[in-house]
């Protein structure tokens, strides 16, 4: 288990999610693949904060206080905010999908072309 293996796992999950977003025809399946991509980003952020030193570690060298060492965990904070934003995004997107289903009675992407000219 190293930085490279974690980043490769994250890249693979992101590529699968990207494939799903480009390929799926159902709106809810697209939403699920977006969640896969969010998960890949979270894995990358946590792995980077576990294995990579912040840039101030290169400069300061010997005299680091405990607050500066705490900054190693910045990746965890980023992924907490990413989780909060993805929860918000899912509930908003599902509300929009319910509205589309009420008005057009379908959730297929190729039938939703009201805005095309």
């Amino acid at each position: 288990m190293s930085l490279e293996s974690v980043l490769t796992l994250s890249a693979g999950l992101f590529a699968i999610g990207l494939f799903g977003v480009l390929t799926k025809r159902n709106l809810i399946a697209v939403l699920m693949c977006i969640e896969l991509m969010f998960n890949a980003i979270n894995v990358a952020a946590v792995g980077i904060s576990r294995y990579i030193a912040p840039s101030m570690f290169r400069i300061a060298g010997s005299d680091l206080n405990s607050e500066q060492v705490d900054l190693i965990l910045s990746g965890h904070v980023i992924s907490i905010f990413s989780i909060a934003i993805s929860a918000a995004e899912v509930s908003m997107a599902l509300a929009i999908i319910i509205l589309i289903y009420r008005t057009k009675n379908t959730v297929d992407i190729s039938d939703i072309n009201k805005m095309s000219g």
């Binding site: 490279e4 980043l7 490769t8 693979g12 590529a15 576990r50 294995y51 570690f57």
Partner: peptide, 13 residues
Amino acid sequence: LSYFLINEEWFLL
């Protein structure tokens, strides 16, 4: 993506 991520010179902890 994985090629560039693996070949990058990271500054590790």
